[in-house]
């Protein structure tokens, strides 16, 4: 395999995955508007296309055609850099995620994962932690007090919850004995549902901690303080308009999808089927390639639905409640989970 073929093939994969991810982002927005609409007893978008299915297209065209305003007081280089950084960090993350069975290859090229990295989980954490810059710089460079307050809140929130987020994943790493996302999924593949980390691995506490911390990381309800409309106008993206606002918006939804992907891989067995292979479907090569993809997408869909459900149900936390919850509850619980898991693994040997 020549290196140029490898580069070409990787570029093709990146292109396809990015387009699919952006489509996913667009339709997550529609899903959210529909589901929140139904929760609030109204229809949500229903005019454009059948069931409002073309709404994302129209939304995209709208934000593209709006006037792009750069306020006079802003610090321009960073003001322009911030949305790009946000979106880039959100999109890069998908490159280490195995979204189908990565063992399946076509002529030596692996189909369902862009790159199989030994330190996949650390890459996920690293890219998430660099994503803070987008928000911090957006608020500071806007030269607006609401933006600055929103971004200060947000950076403090992200830094605090990153600890709980990272520590909640240690239990999973201990069980799998590897940081490679493919290996972590394969360690849960033996008995279907029963060997998933959340059930068979007794990681449901870690799962709860991860999910809560991830909701705070993505600035979603009930932790959407950085953009609390009633207090801060729109938080860090108050001064952003048109495509630059759309980039923040896309970054938020892409991050939701990323959290769904990571939670699926670490706790719900990734692409593996909940029934194991009791129907013997693995012998058909086409089904064996497509079914994992189906399971993965439906699990991620479940997480997205949960996100929207929580948003439609729970009220927003107050800032001091948020900090207390993160430091006094989530962090100790995550540490206890590590101690418990390592004791259990040590005694089992």
């Amino acid at each position: 395999m020549s290196i140029w073929w490898f580069v070409l093939w990787s570029l093709l994969k990146v292109l396809v995955v990015t387009v699919v991810l952006l489509m996913g982002v667009a339709y997550t927005v529609l899903l959210e508007r529909k589901v929140v609409g139904r929760i609030q007893n109204r229809w949500g978008p229903s005019r454009v296309g059948p069931f409002g299915l073309l709404q994302p297209l129209v939304d995209g065209a709208k934000s593209f055609l709006k006037e792009d305003i750069i306020p006079t007081g802003v610090y321009k280089p960073l003001y322009l850099l911030a949305p790009i950084l946000s979106l880039a960090c959100a999109l890069i993350l998908i490159s280490v995620v195995p979204f189908g069975n990565p063992d399946i290859a076509l002529g030596g090229f692996h189909l369902f994962q862009i790159s199989d990295v030994n330190i996949g989980l650390l890459v996920v954490l690293g890219v998430t932690s660099v994503g803070v810059y987008g928000i911090a710089l957006a608020g500071w460079s806007s030269n607006n007090k609401y933006s600055l307050l929103g971004s200060l809140r947000s950076s403090a929130q992200l830094i605090s919850y990153e600890l709980a987020l990272g520590l909640s994943l240690v239990g999973v790493v201990l069980r799998a004995g590897s940081l490679n996302l493919r290996v972590i999924v394969e360690s849960q593949a033996t008995h279907g549902l029963l060997s998933w980390n959340i059930f068979g691995g007794f990681q449901f506490i870690a799962f709860f901690v991860y999910l809560t911390a991830a909701y705070a990381e993505t600035n979603r309800a009930p932790f959407d303080l950085p953009e609390a409309e009633s207090e801060l106008t729109a938080g860090y993206h108050t001064e952003y308009s048109s495509m630059k606002f759309a980039m923040f918006f896309m970054a938020e939804y892409a991050n939701m999808i990323n959290v769904g992907c990571v939670a699926t891989l670490l706790f719900l067995g990734g692409w593996t089927s909940p029934f194991g292979d009791i129907f013997g479907l693995q012998q058909y090569p086409i089904l064996a390639a497509i079914l994992p993809l189906f399971w993965f997408v439906s699990k991620v869909f479940f997480f997205l639905f949960l996100y929207i459900w929580v948003r439609g149900t729970l009220p927003r936390f107050r800032y001091d409640q948020l900090m207390n919850f993160g430091w006094r509850w989530l962090l100790p619980v995550a540490i206890l989970n590590i101690v418990g898991t390592s004791l259990w693994l040590a005694l089992k040997q």
């Binding site: 330190i119 890459v123 954490l125 932690s129 660099v130 803070v132 810059y133 911090a136 950076s155 830094i159």
Partner: peptide, 22 residues
């Protein structure tokens, strides 16, 4: 490499930026 990104770029430098903003 991962620790460099997580610890330096993701934590220490965010702290610096935070203080500069503050």
């Amino acid at each position: 490499a991962a620790a460099q990104i997580i610890v330096y770029a993701g934590a220490i430098m965010v702290l610096f930026t935070f203080v500069i903003m503050l």
